[in-house]
Simulated scan of single mutants.
Amino acid sequence: MRRAMPAPPPRSYSTWLLMAALAALAAASFYSLPLEWAALFSEDAVRSSAEFLAGFAPPDTTQPFLLKCLGATLETLSMSALGTLLAVAGGLALALPAGGRFGNVLRWPTRGLLNVLRSIPELVWASLLLVAAGLGPFAGTLALAMHTVGVLGRLFADLLENTEPQPERALRANGAAPMAAFLYATLPQALPQMLSYTLYRWENNIRAAAVLGVVGAGGLGQMLKYHLSLFQMQQAATVIVAMLLLVGLVDAASYALRRALTR
């Protein structure tokens, strides 16, 4: 005889209230926003969009322009990689006090700093840093690092807080130094998930680095802005294809690395 499935656990009133509030928020959003669906799918809109997209074909495949795109692609890749590397170092340094390693005196101010860093988008960081660092990839790299420090720092802090404390306590009880106990007991527990978060943020930074060039931060985004502003649509199409290929390759490589780390 087939055993009956157990009944699902009862939901609390707070869960139902939260779901109702989310549904009301979604309904209010549709009501308050002037969404003109008829204009979006009108005959004029479809015809204008088709004419605009037709201007991108065929992409510019001349050798000098492809070499120029290759250089910008490598610049975008370098911006994302270096920005992520700097963010890992800064995020781990801030995650220690944010995770309560030095008591509650530093915990809440550090978490507040992480909230500020990640609440400011990369484009805003780039616009601010362009004043100090000037046009080019340096400002874009710093902008990626500043935002990603806030994201990774919060994730790393939560990971360190949720690790099993007993191994570190055992080492401390046997005379190990606090830093040695942390490095040999706590950090190895969190390291695989930290690497997974880092690779995921690297994927996001590839996309962000491709967009940061719009404000003059170098790479493919700067090329795209330049050619679109001059209505050189075929050159812009080549840049867009380069962006798609770069994001696809990095996504595939990051997915393979995450699979290898979690096995």
Score class of each variant (00 low, 15 high):
L171R: 04
Q232C: 12
T163R: 05
V250L: 14
Q222E: 15
P9E: 14
P59K: 07
A28T: 02
L183S: 05
F41W: 11
A132G: 11
S229G: 13
S42A: 04
L187H: 06
L245K: 06
D251Y: 05
G112F: 08
A173Q: 08
Y255M: 13
R118W: 01
L230K: 06
A253F: 12
L160P: 05
S119R: 01
G99V: 08
L228W: 10
A181V: 03
A95Y: 02
L82C: 08
S78Y: 08
L25D: 01
A39C: 00
F30E: 08
A45T: 11
A98Y: 01
T76H: 02
L22N: 02
S80H: 01
E122Q: 00
L144R: 01
L35P: 01
L144E: 03
A236P: 12
F156D: 04
G221S: 13
Q222R: 15
G216C: 14
L224E: 14
E43T: 05
N174V: 12
L40F: 14
M5G: 12
G213K: 14
M223A: 15
G112C: 10
L152M: 03
M19S: 08
G100C: 09
L67K: 03
M233I: 14
V116A: 14
Q235N: 15
F182P: 02
T62W: 05
L224F: 13
V215R: 14
Y197H: 10
H147I: 03
A27R: 00
V241H: 04
